[in-house]
Every structure is written in structure tokens, then in C-alpha cells.
């Protein structure tokens, strides 16, 4: 578990002592990353702002319970993800949660790339614009169940360690590893289902 930085701890302590400016500095430090994280749960800019705002307001209220042995950022991630999922539930966009695919997990034949005859996943075509790749990746992410999307987002975009992901999601490192494995297989399957042209020529 990554410990909170000394600077974060100082700002947390000052905030708890009633210093509004210190909390403002904490928000400024993490607001961009929170906006980037929450965009994986909704594309609506107003909703993103509302969710991030609620995340920081909840963080302020719960600051006395912040365990200073953990990273302020991973603690904030946990609040943000829960706020985003609660929001989706409230507006009727029930995220697909708790989906584990036992068939995919248990069958080595279903495992990404384990069959020599299976469709391989190529890297993005060099002719594709970076923005186009980003757009395709975001669409594919939105199509996979939330449980897999979240673990991919934390690893591939937030670049958290397995231990930090375990900390954010409240699961073991072993579960992080197996969930990431399944999430990548799902991502690949969905990418090739939406864009079969990317799989051509790799069999």
C-alpha cells in the first residue's frame, strides 16, 4: 500500500484543523485525475463535474476516518468510483456489476491467445490516428461489464500497482490478477467483435 505523501498529509491535517485553503489545494492537486477517472463512467461533462464534486465533498466529510497509512489518491479513487456507480444506479443506468465469467476463467481454451489457431490481437494499425485509437478504446471499454472496466481503468489509465488496485477495490491481489486477466480477454473479444477487421491476417 502506497503511503500518503508528506505533503498530502500536511494538507489533510490542516484541513482537519479547519483550513479551507488547504482543502482547496488538495482538490487542485487531484481534480484533473478525478475528472479523467470519472469520464470512464459517463461522457456527459455536467455529470462528470457533479460526480467529481460529490467525491471531494464526501472526502471532506470522511477526512477524519482517512487512514494516513494509505495513499490519499487511492482513497479518493475509491470514493470516486463508488460515487460514479451510485450515480449510474440512481439515474437508471444500472452498471453490470459482479459479473465473473467462470467459463472464461476456467477454460484454458477460452484464454486470450492460448490457442495457436485463435484470432490474435494486433497492436493498433500505424495508419490510425491516435485520437481514433483513443475513441475506439473508449467505446470498447464502455461495452464491457463495469467490474472489468474498473480494474482496467485503474491499471491502464491510473497506472496503479496491483496492491493499490486491491486497496481501492477492497479485494486481494490474487483477485486483482485474475480479474485483470479476464478483463483483458473481454476487452480483446469486444474489440474484435466491434472491429473484426483488426483481427484479420493474424490467424
Amino acid at each position: 500500500m502506497e503511503a500518503a505523501s508528506k505533503d498530502d498529509l500536511r494538507l489533510v491535517t490542516e484541513t482537519l484543523a479547519g483550513n479551507q485553503l488547504s482543502f482547496q489545494l488538495l482538490v487542485e492537486r487531484y481534480q484533473q485525475r478525478m475528472f479523467a477517472l470519472v469520464r470512464h463512467y459517463t461522457r456527459n461533462p455536467v455529470e462528470i463535474e457533479d460526480i467529481v464534486q460529490d467525491t471531494f465533498l464526501k472526502a471532506y466529510t470522511r477526512l477524519p476516518s482517512f487512514q494516513q497509512a494509505s495513499s490519499f489518491y487511492t482513497w479518493l479513487c475509491r470514493i470516486a468510483i463508488n460515487t460514479a456507480l451510485d450515480f449510474q444506479k440512481r439515474v437508471g443506468r444500472n452498471p453490470v456489476r459482479g459479473v465473473e465469467d467462470p467459463e472464461l476463467a476456467l477454460s484454458p481454451d477460452g484464454i486470450e491467445g492460448s490457442r495457436p489457431t485463435g484470432t490474435r490481437l494486433p497492436a493498433p494499425d500505424a495508419r490510425l490516428e491516435r485520437d481514433e485509437i483513443a475513441r475506439i478504446t473508449q467505446t470498447v471499454l464502455e461495452e464491457i461489464p463495469e467490474i472489468f472496466r474498473t480494474v482496467l481503468v485503474l491499471r491502464e489509465f491510473e497506472e496503479l500497482s496491483y496492491q493499490d488496485i486491491a486497496d481501492v477495490l477492497g479485494i486481494s491481489i490474487g483477485t486483482v490478477e485474475s480479474r485483470l486477466f479476464r478483463a483483458r480477454a473481454r476487452f480483446k473479444d469486444k474489440l474484435l467483435a466491434l472491429h473484426p477487421e483488426f483481427g484479420e491476417g493474424w490467424s
Partner: peptide
Amino acid sequence: DGRALQRWFTPLRESASAPAVPSGFAARVA
């Protein structure tokens, strides 16, 4: 394949299209 998959994520991670934080957001929230 795993390495190829990582290259699908890079552009979105580095994307400039990440939503902009509205001005004055931190002060307002605090």
C-alpha cells in the same frame, strides 16, 4: 498479444481529450 493490448490503451491514457476542469472548481468545492 498482451503487449499489443497495452498499445491500445496508450493513446487514450495520453489523450488531450480528457475533460477540462472548470475554472474555479477547487475553490467552489472547498
